[in-house]
């Protein structure tokens, strides 16, 4: 089963849960009460968020709190950086190949 940040933020209910706990930990009940759907449905979303590493449930006395681990969302922007780096390298390599093929020296350097 695929469990990553992309999956976590793909669902509007999960995004709402994340934004509720972005700044402060919340008692589990105050999270579930915010939604019209069943408690079980919200627990399911919380479970997915936990598996994605974005949420942690902590026991404080008799209460359970949801804590956000939103730094994991950086993976979304990491993807962009990785994609760019991946293609920049490939295209550098293509440029060298095309220069060699045409018998041109590398003195022109990289062109953007």
């Amino acid at each position: 089963m695929r469990r990553d940040v992309f999956q976590a933020i793909a669902d509007p209910t999960r995004r709402e849960i994340l934004s509720m706990i972005a700044h402060k930990s919340l008692n589990i009940n105050s999270v579930t009460e915010n939604f019209d759907v069943s408690r079980a449905a919200i627990y399911k979303h919380m479970k997915i968020l936990t598996e994605c590493g974005l949420l942690e449930i902590k026991q404080h006395g008799r209460q359970r709190f949801c804590e956000g681990r939103l730094e994991k969302l950086n993976e979304v922007s990491d993807w962009v950086a990785q994609y760019r780096e991946f293609w920049d390298k490939r295209l550098d390599s293509l440029e060298v190949y095309l220069q060699e093929l045409q018998g041109k020296s590398k003195k022109h350097g990289k062109k953007k």
Binding site: V80, R84, R90, L91, E95, Y97, L101, K112
Partner: peptide, 30 residues
């Protein structure tokens, strides 16, 4: 995401570099 690059080569050649196996192996890959 959009990435653009200018190559000092005719288009036909760039296309071949992307589509012919014997050319792809020359540059594709880290």
């Amino acid at each position: 995401l959009v990435i653009a690059r200018v190559f000092d080569a005719p288009r036909g050649l760039v296309f071949k570099a992307w589509t012919e196996a014997e050319r792809l192996v020359q540059w594709w890959g880290p």
